[in-house]
Design a binder for these strands. Structure first.
Lengths: 120, 120
DNA sequence: TAATAAATTTAGAATGATTCAAAAATAAAT
DNA sequence: ATTTATTTTTGAATCATTCTAAATTTATTA
């Protein structure tokens, strides 16, 4: 456990949501000003591999990192771009039925309007 | 309609599956040797925007392009890496129920073993 | 606690997919 | 056939991310 890693973990604990590496870098810099981007990537990649966080990828955007390590769904608002968590009950079973095998992992990103951006 | 665009469309019609821009580039080159990568990207981006193909993104890999323009699901095999289509009936309704709003689009990528890579 | 080994961080260059800007070529419209 | 609009080409640029090697820090062992 290094001071740099501690800073990254602190930043992710104290800020809610789905971070880009750059966002974490800027926040971690406030905790530990000499920290460098490669350290952010090293640690985030390690955490993803050990399964303590998740990676969310969206084409044309940098990857985001999600504090919630369990497979779950995401909404990306087509109005404001905000990323939110969602849980669809029974989804894993539906996937198992459709594939006929064990689901090792999955990513579901839904594009729709978040409550604040809804017109109707 | 240019000869380059025709070559790209021909390549996508005659080869099944989910192409990277680079794969399309190499195949299109056989049809039209002077074609250039930027033309591939121009055309693919245009087709995605007009909704005649879809983009699949996978972190750490180049984007893939899917001839099937309808929202549907994908399996990426954790054994061989192959990308296959899948359809999960009732998924859209489950998403509508969970979000309470109209689903404009979605991407679902499932990581599991394809039939050829299954051990059990 | 000192010495050694192992892991992590740093700096900065490198990579790779993709985009961009400007010029050249081609297609469409008059 | 001319003009206008669109597309392609070239090659440089961008951006997120990874890599390499050296320096530093942490953990382990004596």
């Amino acid at each position: 456990m290094t001071k740099q890693r501690a800073a990254i973990i602190k930043v992710m604990r104290e800020n809610c949501g789905h971070f880009t590496a750059e966002e974490i870098f800027l926040l971690a810099k406030e905790e530990y000003p000499s920290i460098v981007r490669a350290t952010i990537y090293n640690n985030l990649n390690g955490m993803v591999e050990e399964g303590s966080i998740r990676r969310i990828c969206q084409s044309g955007h940098p990857d985001r990192f999600d504090r919630n390590p369990m497979p779950h769904e995401h909404i990306i608002c087509t109005g404001c771009g905000k990323v939110e968590d969602l849980n669809i009950p029974g989804l894993t079973e539906a996937m198992e039925d459709a594939t006929g095998c064990e689901i090792e992992d999955y990513e579901l990103v839904i594009h729709c309007k978040c409550p604040e951006c809804r017109v109707v």
